[in-house]
Design a protein around this nucleic acid. Structure first.
Ligand code: MN
Ligand code: MN
Ligand code: ZN
Ligand code: ZN
Lengths: 142, 142
DNA sequence: AATTTCATGCAACGTTGTTGCATTTGTGTT
DNA sequence: AACACAAATGCAACAACGTTGCATGAAATT
């Protein structure tokens, strides 16, 4: 995985702008999937449309992926690598904590192969786990 | 599974109103998960807020469940049974066709037990499959 | 430095989620 | 059958988001 924001932009042929670098820095420091509104709050002043387009571009270009977590608030996380504008390769599970509302990527947990039912052709499989995260579990038993 | 709209409302202690009966009839005839906007179009004239509250009530009372399909449009389908205001028991997978956009319940496909990673406690697991449905597959090879 | 291509900021609009409130309707009781 | 109560509906209203167009500013290319 690339570690520096500048290199991530280079690798995906994206212009090096202030907003993009700042967004990437936030993602790199976070260990969870982030919503657009959360990102907005990290800035003193930023245009929500610019943020919207930044996320859309990042997703299209394979910089970030959407973390499906069962809520109605889309969350995003950095792609591990290999993803580009043609294809995403992040098929790991995502975990949503019902207690704190955080969403985590479970990179190590990959959806098993499923045989297609009813004559369908299955191209991708995503798993969404819900429960209580480690921090919240430890918090309730002091 | 209950087959008549009237009985579904009785079983869940819901008042028998025109909108509710009509919505249930649409769900009973459909073999796929439906969005609120789709339901709206099935009526000549209906208030969207009433429809919104109808779906919310149905979901709370265990009449319908939300079908997670990876899109940003919530879809709903009838619960198989046993669901009530206290708990939902529909943990089957859902399939989303990238071609026609339809979402289907895969009642027969239940998420396997997962061991909790990273010290998390997993309460529920949902699976979302994407690909091409039977109708669309047959449509392209005439 | 000039040019070109693209990102940004802002206005604007549509959709959806959500609540408050007055009115109508369903249902159990006189 | 009429009544009374609780709940559902219709409508106004607002917030949050997603999305596009356009003028302006910034990055990359020459
Ligand atoms: Mn992820
Ligand atoms: Mn379902
Ligand atoms: Zn938590
Ligand atoms: Zn299809």
């Amino acid at each position: 995985m690339q570690l520096r924001p500048e290199q991530i932009l280079n690798d995906h042929q994206l212009r090096r702008t202030a907003v993009r670098l700042a967004v990437l820095r936030i993602f790199l420091e976070a260990d969870e999937a982030l919503s657009q509104s959360y990102l907005e709050q990290q800035f003193e002043q930023v245009d929500r449309i610019t943020l919207y387009r930044t996320l859309r571009t990042f997703e299209q270009k394979g910089v970030i992926h959407r973390a499906l977590d069962g809520t109605d608030t889309p969350k995003y996380a950095l792609c591990a690598g290999e993803c580009n504008e043609h294809a995403h390769h992040d098929h790991h599970a995502h975990f949503h904590c019902d207690d704190c509302g955080r969403t985590y990527c479970l990179e190590e947990m990959v959806a098993p192969r499923f045989h297609a039912p009813r004559g369908f052709r299955v191209d991708e499989a995503h798993m969404v786990l819900t429960g209580v995260c480690k921090e919240c579990l430890e918090g309730v038993s002091p």
